[in-house]
C-alpha cells in the first residue's frame, strides 16, 4: 500500500549505500596510505571521482523532479536513492580527504558538502515528523478551507458587533482588519501573532490571540444593561474565541509548512555553492599537480 521513500522497495538503496560505504572503508583500511595521507593515490582518485559523480547525480534530482514525463524510475525511487547515496557520500568523501583538513579551498568544498548533507538530514526528519502534525492541526482541512471559515466567522462577527453598539462595531472591525497571519520567514517559523487593534482610549495595541478585543467586548458586556445587546456581546466573545483558535491553527499550519521547506533554502543554494567549490577543487588539483 503506502510505502515511504525510506523503505522504498524494501530499502534497496539503503543496501546499495551500505555496500558502497563498506567497500570504501575496506579499501581504505587495506590500502597503503602515503604520509601524510592525501587524495593523490589511485584510491584517492577513485574515491574522489565517485564522490564527484555522486554530487553531480544528487544535484540532478532537481532536474529529474521537473522532468514530469520521464520514464527513468519514479521520483520516489530517486528520492530514496538520493537520501541513502547522499548519506554514503559522507563516508566516501571523508575517506577521499584522508582526514587532511585546513583553511583551504578543498576543505571549503568538503564543508559545504557536509552542510548540504546535514540540512538534508533535517529534511528527512521534517518529512517524517510534520505531515501527520499538519493533518492533526487542521483536521485534514486545506488552508483555503480554513480561510473560508475565517471569512464566514468575520461575517457573523460584523453582524453581531453592530448589535453590540457603535464602539464595539468599530473595534471589532479594526480587530478583523488588523489581523496578521504570517509575515517575514522568521515570523512564520516562530508562529508570531502581530495582530493589532485600535481601541477607544487605548489607541493601537497588540491583539495577539485576540485577547485585547475579547477583553474589550467583555468589559462592555459587564457594563451592558440591555438584554439583547448583552446577548449579542456574549455571543460575540464566544465567536472571537473561536476566531482566535482558528487563526492559531492557521499560524501553526504556516509554521509547519515553513518547517517542511525552510531546510531547502539551505540545501539547494549550498549544493550549488558546493558544486562550484568542487569544480574549483578539481581544477586546482590538476593545475598544481
Amino acid at each position: 500500500m503506502f510505502e515511504s521513500f525510506l523503505t522504498y522497495r524494501s530499502g534497496r538503496w539503503f543496501w546499495w549505500a551500505l555496500a558502497l560505504s563498506a567497500v570504501s572503508i575496506g579499501l581504505y583500511a587495506w590500502h597503503d596510505l602515503p604520509d601524510p595521507p592525501n587524495g593523490g593515490t589511485w584510491l584517492g582518485y577513485t574515491l574522489g571521482s565517485v564522490a564527484a559523480a555522486l554530487i553531480v547525480w544528487l544535484i540532478w534530482l532537481g532536474r529529474r523532479k521537473r522532468d514530469y514525463g520521464s520514464k527513468v524510475g519514479t521520483v520516489q525511487g530517486w528520492t530514496s536513492a538520493h537520501v541513502y547515496l547522499g548519506t554514503a557520500l559522507i563516508i566516501v568523501a571523508t575517506l577521499h580527504t584522508g582526514f587532511q583538513f585546513g583553511w583551504n579551498l578543498h576543505t571549503l568544498a568538503y564543508t559545504l558538502m557536509m552542510i548540504v548533507i546535514l540540512s538534508g538530514f533535517f529534511g528527512i526528519w521534517a518529512y517524517a515528523r510534520y505531515p501527520s502534525r499538519m493533518t492533526e492541526n487542521t483536521g485534514g482541512k486545506s488552508r483555503p478551507e480554513l480561510y473560508t471559515e475565517v471569512a464566514e466567522l468575520d461575517r457573523q462577527l460584523q453582524r453581531l458587533a453592530e448589535k453590540g453598539g457603535p464602539e464595539v462595531a468599530t473595534a471589532v472591525a479594526s480587530a478583523v482588519e488588523r489581523t496578521v497571519v504570517g509575515g517575514s520567514w522568521l515570523a512564520q517559523l516562530k508562529r508570531e501573532d502581530r495582530s493589532e487593534v485600535q481601541l477607544p482610549g487605548k489607541g493601537l495595541v497588540s491583539n495577539a490571540g485576540m485577547a485585547a478585543i475579547v477583553d474589550f467586548v467583555i468589559e462592555h458586556l459587564g457594563a451592558s444593561r440591555d438584554g439583547a445587546q448583552g446577548e449579542a456581546l456574549r455571543e460575540l466573545s464566544t465567536l472571537l474565541g473561536n476566531r482566535a483558535r482558528l487563526l492559531s491553527r492557521i499560524r501553526r499550519d504556516v509554521q509547519l509548512v515553513g518547517l517542511l521547506r525552510v531546510w531547502l533554502f539551505v540545501h539547494v543554494p549550498v549544493a550549488f555553492a558546493c558544486l562550484a567549490a568542487l569544480t574549483a577543487h578539481i581544477v586546482s588539483v590538476f593545475i598544481y599537480w
Binding site: M1, K65, K71, T74, V75, Y127
Partner: peptide, 27 residues
C-alpha cells in the same frame, strides 16, 4: 505515458497511490 500516472510517479515521498477498489480492504 509509459510508466503510469504522472501524479504518482512524481510524488517524492510515496504518499500518492492509485488503487482499484479491490485494494480498499488493504487500505
Amino acid at each position: 505515458l509509459a510508466g503510469g500516472p504522472a501524479c504518482v510517479r512524481a510524488c517524492p515521498t510515496g504518499a500518492a497511490v492509485r488503487l482499484s477498489p479491490e485494494a480498499f480492504v488493504d487500505v
